[in-house]
Design a protein around this nucleic acid. Structure first.
Lengths: 140, 140
DNA sequence: CGCATTTAGTTTCATTTGAAACTATTTTTA
DNA sequence: TAAAAATAGTTTCAAATGAAACTAAATGCG
């Protein structure tokens, strides 16, 4: 039994390193953390949705979403509007500053990913996607 | 830009799911957390080493190691002995209860891993190992 | 309708985490 | 050597996390 050969251990070390690298990068470059980054990306593609919908799309739990939205509104990247049919809910939308931020964040993210992937061959990329999909099926 | 297609996101979701599954499993089966599990595995292979050495082997930081060792000694799985040459350090070793615990934990871990891997073909397993090694080289 | 249940989101609380400061000891260097 | 620097490990503190309890509103049902 060798810890360094143990798959779940390897996976967790690897992904922790990658996330940590990204988190630092976004903090430095844009002053946002990973939760904020995720919510921003979701609102970029899905304008005017509620916290509930964001939770659905992001796999984050509602407490974290609530806090993240609060902080993004405070930082003035988002504008909330009262939900027309449900007094408990608000819709959130990137405002001008938010859209401006995302015009820098999105290409940066794609560059970051491309930089990772550029070091793999086409075959390796395909294998990677296949394996991720397969694990997701296995684990559910 | 689709979050669900974004590699770092996919990796972190995947590894989070796997770690969470394992953490619950070990808590339920043996009443130990992942830090404790890691330290136990390391001491199983490397008896009589110091916290420093454990940190080196586990990639965990020294605060976490210190707390984990404390809790494992409290749970009476480890016996510390004064380091012969350095009054600041102790050597740690699995005691009787610890060895007994590990006789259950190790096969269980291997079974857990085998269960994951059994759902991959030989080719997929090779690809997986290759990709993990490659990412480790890329990221350092 | 009117009471019970569910749902959206927030707050509270206890736990986990790790950086920074700290203690105690060992090693280096002048 | 004796003072300075480095090292092993612990404690302190503040931030992040998420389960559980909570508030307020919407929905279901008799």
């Amino acid at each position: 039994m060798d810890l360094n050969q143990f798959l779940p251990y390897q996976l967790s070390i690897l992904s922790l390193k990658i996330s940590k690298g990204i988190a630092e990068h976004y903090q430095d470059q844009f002053g946002i953390n990973i939760s904020e980054w995720r919510v921003l990306v979701i609102l970029y593609k899905n304008p005017d949705i509620t916290a509930k919908k964001i939770a659905l799309l992001s796999q984050m739990d509602k407490v974290r979403i609530s806090r993240t939205l609060k902080s993004l509104v405070q930082k003035d990247y988002l504008t909330p509007t009262q939900h027309p049919l449900d007094a408990r809910a608000k819709n959130y939308e990137l405002n001008k500053r938010g859209r401006y931020l995302m015009r820098a964040v999105i290409p940066d993210a794609l560059r970051y990913e491309e930089n990772l992937l550029s070091q793999l061959s086409n075959e390796e990329r395909n294998q990677l996607h296949h394996l991720i999909a397969k694990f997701n099926r296995i684990i559910g």
